[in-house]
Amino acid sequence: MTPRFATDIITFFHPDFWGLQSADAVRGWASANPEGFWERVMDALAEAGVTGIELTFAPGDIDSALRAFGGAPAFRRALETRGLSVVSAFIAGSDCPDWRDGTNLPAIVADAERRAAFLAGMGAELLVAGLPMRTTFGTRPPFFVDAAYMTRMADIAHVVGEAVARHGVKLAFHTESNSTLWYERDIDLFMALTDPRYVWLCPDSCHIALGGGDPVAVARRHAQRIALAHWKDAVKPIDVHLTVDETVFAQQQPYMTELGTGIVDWRGWADAMSRTPGAGIVLIELDEAPDPVAALRAGTAVASRQMRA
């Protein structure tokens, strides 16, 4: 089976691609011109030969697509005319209910069901989530990612996973740096506590490496539960304690690099991915590429070579 290539919409967030001066300017223009934003993104995807999209933060989110096209059917038709489709959506945004607050489960489920209904209408079947972030090391009182915490997260994941499954959608968890699903131990514990019928994994090769882990070993251990993976490279593990606040994602950027130029064992990763339920999609993740078409072509070339090796 020849896999399809996909990418996260964050690939298209760099100001240079839009001829603008800042990320805020991109968000402002895209918010005012959602149809123009999506038309240019779709044209670039078609030019790069990448056919799948993962929706994520604004302006590349579900709400932006709905504003641009008026509904899922019209958005799906616009994509299909270019040979494109949505493969997944990430639970993201400032309005997302906080999983750390166990009293808001109805809001968490309602938010996930709304997204799952949209995905079902798009012919997609993967909803990607993350666990809450850690706190900065040394913060008092300390926050421990222990068995009690992971049990609470597993309980929420089961309820959400069952709810979205009724829409024909799988719930998969992403391994984000500085989150409570980052280290190899975090992943193993969460997977052990969750039911494989309702909870899937979306490993990110870069983020696992940034936590000092072995992405290939993680993929091999949990191969049967990988519904999707993010293919991304890392310069080296994060060797300092980052401040976990609204700037943490920017602090992580210097540790990330283009596919094939970092420390990820791509041949081992490609082999492990070929043995998973998510083998049909290769999602190349490139955060804010100044030239997304060139970057996607380069990334897909690296992945293709490793899959043929």
Score class of each variant (00 low, 15 high):
135 T>G: 08
149 Y>P: 05
55 L>P: 15
285 E>R: 01
45 L>M: 07
212 G>Y: 10
263 I>Q: 01
7 T>S: 13
279 A>E: 04
210 L>H: 07
241 H>K: 04
203 P>V: 11
4 R>F: 01
158 H>P: 06
104 N>V: 11
289 A>V: 08
109 V>L: 01
31 S>I: 06
163 A>L: 08
51 T>F: 13
156 I>Q: 05
212 G>K: 13
146 D>S: 07
275 R>N: 07
143 F>R: 09
242 L>I: 03
128 V>P: 05
212 G>Q: 06
159 V>T: 11
27 R>T: 12
228 L>F: 07
183 Y>L: 10
307 M>A: 12
53 I>N: 15
54 E>F: 15
240 V>R: 01
263 I>T: 00
10 I>F: 14
267 R>N: 11
200 W>N: 10
136 T>R: 04
82 R>H: 10
298 A>W: 07
68 A>I: 15
130 G>S: 05
181 L>W: 04
86 V>K: 03
290 P>E: 06
193 L>V: 10
275 R>L: 10
108 I>A: 05
4 R>S: 13
140 R>T: 12
66 L>R: 07
100 R>V: 09
132 P>I: 05
96 C>V: 06
261 T>K: 15
36 G>V: 00
145 V>Y: 03
11 T>I: 12
225 R>N: 04
147 A>R: 09
141 P>V: 02
73 P>H: 15
164 V>D: 06
151 T>Q: 14
32 A>P: 07
97 P>Y: 02
254 P>G: 08
195 D>L: 10
20 L>Q: 00
25 A>P: 01
182 W>C: 04
208 I>Q: 13
298 A>P: 13
111 D>R: 02
287 D>A: 03
280 G>E: 06
4 R>Q: 13
111 D>G: 01
73 P>Q: 15
223 A>S: 12
3 P>A: 15
233 D>P: 02
20 L>R: 02
128 V>L: 08
243 T>I: 05
40 R>H: 09
309 A>W: 09
234 A>N: 05
137 F>C: 07
27 R>I: 11
299 G>N: 12
192 A>S: 12
104 N>F: 00
257 T>L: 09
86 V>T: 03
176 E>P: 01
48 A>D: 14
161 G>N: 09
13 F>M: 10
84 L>Y: 00
277 P>S: 05
76 R>N: 14
283 L>F: 01
122 M>C: 02
48 A>K: 13
179 S>C: 04
267 R>D: 14
235 V>T: 03
81 T>W: 11
221 R>L: 12
308 R>L: 08
80 E>W: 05
267 R>W: 08
53 I>L: 15
254 P>L: 05
67 R>K: 15
145 V>N: 07
163 A>I: 03
268 G>H: 11
6 A>N: 14
178 N>I: 05
186 D>H: 12
53 I>A: 15
14 H>S: 15
273 M>S: 08
178 N>A: 09
256 M>Q: 11
258 E>F: 11
302 V>T: 09
64 S>V: 14
1 M>A: 14
283 L>W: 00
174 H>M: 02
216 V>M: 13
274 S>G: 10
59 P>Q: 14
279 A>R: 10
178 N>S: 09
171 L>N: 02
307 M>G: 10
114 R>K: 03
